[in-house]
């Protein structure tokens, strides 16, 4: 069983969480002109990285908060977790 340390609740089973996608995607600035390709990249195109990766997860059966999780997509090892409003330092 995979365990994720929720920054609000503490160490919990992965069963309580729901995966929410790539946490590094940034929405284009409001009001700024962007190309169709940039919009396409924001909405659809994702890299399928092997290795360390920041992801969004929701503690759906716990505190119901969205969190950021740094996980190795090959080994499933979890290195770090952050609250949703905390910035990722790459």
């Amino acid at each position: 069983m995979l365990y994720i340390k929720c920054p609000h609740c503490g160490m919990r089973s992965q069963n309580e969480f729901s995966y929410g996608g790539d946490a590094t995607i940034k929405r284009p600035e409001l009001g700024k002109e962007i190309s169709d390709q940039d919009w396409d990249n924001f909405v659809y195109n994702r890299k399928s990285l092997r290795g360390k990766h920041w992801e969004l997860w929701q503690h759906i059966s716990g505190c119901r908060q969205w969190i950021k999780v740094e996980r190795d997509t090959a080994t499933h090892e979890i290195f770090n977790t952050l609250k949703a409003n905390e910035e990722i330092s790459l």
Partner: peptide, 9 residues
Amino acid sequence: INSLYNNIT
């Protein structure tokens, strides 16, 4: 706590 019991929140 909030958790699951046999997949029931």
